[in-house]
Design a protein around this nucleic acid. Structure first.
Lengths: 243, 243
DNA sequence: CAGTGGTCTAGACCACGAG
DNA sequence: TCGTGGTCTAGACCACTGG
């Protein structure tokens, strides 16, 4: 008795989530409707309540369900869905596209930060940080341009690193784990320097990514990444992958 | 050692996750290191293994840990972190910015799809879909411009809707839940129409978002959203929990 | 006040894959 | 082969909040 396990690899929670998702998408359960509580669903699916809970939390994280104690679980009125994209290492992006990676450091020196960078990173204007610019290439063609400020106080081992040799992106990822990150996408017309380094035309629209990271010592780094003209940053969501 | 236990409303899994995160960020456990297995951590934190499992899965989802059966759990070598942003309703974005929302439908008609749209949505070129363009305003100033194609076959109740009255964005969100979505960010120089409708200059860099959604009947809608010049799309990730 | 979700536990079996 | 994570279960207590 109680050997439910259908022998096959059946993540029961996934199954329940998929079924609930189906009922929502096929409008069996409509926006705003209250759905059966965990105990009832546990009976229907012959599962423990914890398993049902896991499934429903998954859907709530996706934004499909609204759950409240006492009030029960309802199909979200405005399914505010979340999209995720992964921040990977530039080199990997390039190599995954089947191109040969290379990079070149254009400048590296200590320098006082200007006002706009100060605002982004949350340090006073004029603070001395390490400033560097680098271009990343795929098959010799410019792929992206990074303009980065690094805070040595939050990355103590920084002194040892020579970014003319090493990829700053990679060094930071490997040596300065962060607790919090902020990202923002924008579009800017290429200025003269962008255009020169990316071999683009001044004025061309560039996708810009600003990223700032913090650990418990403060801000680690802030970077403006300019992608080559026409570059797409893709994200995917909907079906959650984890399991 | 085991005097954690606040006795209050302290989600134990969160506490464990935070502590493991701390050890990683402070480089007590370094990239590539194997960390104690779930059973050991359960003892250390005086918790059930399921609770430890939950905490570690959370960190693995964040990209901070790599977990493999038999091989154990290691601190990720390349912490491929994930960033999330929420897809909310335009009206809500505008209103949250403290502006008065309005919108205007510029065009709506059935029309055969051109090649680029066909590619995005995965339907044959020339297929007849509903095409519409609308501008969304905040305090009377253009906020974003949408150019949308809707597939009536995947949104059966579409016939009833008149998007000249109703906000298509909102109608779709409420009436056509999707199973899968694809998003992509790009930058484009404003063309004449973009410029006119957004009251911008031709050639100005615009942040563009392409979004396509599917349900079990096929593609529902694909849209190109052009944001007003200078618009930022922000995302946040990293630590999001308590403290 | 009481129903509902939030969370934890102790135990169990299983699947995967490194050694 | 067998240690490790993946998942489930049955039961329990608690926190929140709607009625």
């Amino acid at each position: 008795m109680t050997d439910r396990q259908a022998g096959s690899t059946s993540p029961k929670a996934q199954h329940i989530a998929a079924e609930v998702r189906r009922r929502i998408v096929e409008r069996e359960w409509r926006q705003g409707d209250r759905i059966p509580d965990e105990a009832d669903l546990a009976i229907e699916f012959d599962a423990a309540r914890a398993t049902v809970n896991k499934a429903l939390q998954l859907l709530a994280d996706e934004g499909l369900l609204d759950r409240k104690r006492r009030a029960g679980t309802r199909v979200a009125i405005d399914p505010v869905r979340k999209a995720t994209f992964t921040i990977s290492i530039v080199r990997e992006q390039v190599e995954q596209a089947g191109m040969a990676y290379s990079h070149r450091v254009v400048a590296q020196r200590r320098s006082p930060i200007p006002a706009d960078v100060a605002a982004r990173i949350g340090l006073p204007e004029g603070e001395m940080l390490v400033h560097m610019r680098a271009v990343h290439y795929g098959d010799g063609r410019p792929f992206q341009l990074e303009d980065r400020w690094i805070n040595p106080r939050a990355a103590p081992e920084l002194e040892d690193a020579d970014f003319r040799q090493l990829n700053a992106n990679e060094w930071l990822v490997r040596n300065a784990p962060y607790l919090r990150a902020e990202l923002a996408f924008s579009a800017e017309n290429a200025n003269r320097r962008d255009a020169r380094l990316l071999r683009a035309q001044p004025g061309q629209a560039l996708l810009i990514l600003y990223r700032t990271t913090w650990n418990d010592l403060g801000p680690i780094t802030t970077v403006r990444v300019a992608f080559q003209p026409g570059h797409l940053v893709r994200t995917e969501n909907g079906q959650s992958r984890s399991d």
